[in-house]
């Protein structure tokens, strides 16, 4: 009887487990093994010990790339994925259902747009010529064109990535806010609470779990994301918007016309740091943010 229960549990979990093993565990193991090799365009597993890791420590670009990654992660999370998402969620749940849905739909557009198209639109918006959208607006006020990607590379990539992440947080937060029993708000209003006070003292404490989830999910996601940076600044100029994942990609997978400048071993060693950082962050989120508690029972009362 007990055995049958275990088998049932296993069968239930099996599809997910298989996916995790196939697409995370095995690639992580292969990447780790590859990080101890000097694999280049010949794809030979020539083991060189910890030379790649030693070279990472010596790489003069690494401090810059760590700092870029931290700014990108914290900036995108704070300003867009949590900050703007929360503001939009509060705004769209306060203005009535129809206008709320309309505004949500607008902010979902970046999600629906294919990455290459989305990046191209931003290239036109932030173009350094006077034809760029931002520069056209500035020219109305007599301000000379700004080269956004050069003068403000981190601002540019945070802006471009931010609008993609905003939609997820906005949907999760607005759903959470809408599921708060109306009695709570009404009772507070009867007691004289202002709109701001209902947000600070009722809505925010109640949606703290979704907030933590978005924070954890997006931080892990941003740590390994680079596609929009690659399509716009490509990490430049001179590594000023190069984040860790993009640096690993450039070394391991980007060659231009030459087939022989690939450095798979070194790129794998850089990726190992991402895997380790991801695992440590997951453990921290699990223990410090008490995710177990969050998942154990419904945290938002539904009437």
């Amino acid at each position: 009887m007990k055995r049958t229960r275990y088998i049932k549990k296993f069968l239930l979990l099996a599809p997910g487990l298989i996916l995790i093993v196939l697409f995370f565990v095995i690639p992580a193991i292969v990447t780790t093994i590859m990080s101890f090799t000097g694999m280049d365009f010949r794809l030979k597993w020539n083991f060189i010990g910890i030379a790649n890791f030693y070279n990472i420590l010596k790489d003069f670009l690494v401090p810059r790339i760590i700092s870029n990654t931290a700014i990108y992660l914290i900036g995108t999370l704070a300003v867009f994925n949590v900050g703007l998402s929360l503001i939009l969620a509060i705004f769209t749940t306060s203005i009535g259902k129809r206008p709320g849905v309309f505004y949500k739909a607008i902010f979902l557009l970046p999600r629906f747009t294919p990455p290459v198209v989305y990046a191209t639109i931003w290239m036109l918006i932030l173009s350094p010529t006077k034809n760029g959208l931002f520069n056209s607006i500035l020219s109305v006020f007599g301000i000379h064109p700004v080269n956004w990607f050069v003068e403000y590379p981190m601002f540019s990539i945070i802006l471009i990535n931010g609008f993609i992440g905003t939609s997820l947080g906005m949907l999760v937060f607005s759903s959470a806010i809408e599921s708060i029993p109306g009695d709570y708000i009404k009772a507070a209003e009867v007691d004289g609470a202002s709109w701001i006070q209902t947000i600070i003292h009722i809505k925010l404490p109640i949606i703290r779990w979704p907030l933590l989830f978005i924070l954890a999910y997006n931080s892990l996601s941003l740590l390994t994301s680079y596609e929009y940076i690659m399509l716009t600044t490509d990490g430049g100029p001179f590594y000023s918007s190069e984040v860790w994942a993009l640096y690993a990609y450039h070394l391991a997978f980007s060659s231009g016309q030459s087939s022989t400048s690939f450095r798979f071993g070194y790129g794998a060693a850089l990726s190992v740091f991402l895997v380790i950082t991801g695992i440590i962050a997951s453990v921290i989120y699990w223990r410090v943010f008490k995710f177990k508690e969050m998942m154990s029972e419904p945290q938002i009362e539904i009437d």
Binding site: T120, P128, N147, V150, G236
Partner: peptide, 16 residues
């Protein structure tokens, strides 16, 4: 030469 000429993408460069 504009600062950061390398941040232009090909289509805009060609068109200009």
């Amino acid at each position: 030469t504009m600062k950061g000429i390398t941040s232009l993408d090909w289509p805009e460069w060609h068109q200009t």
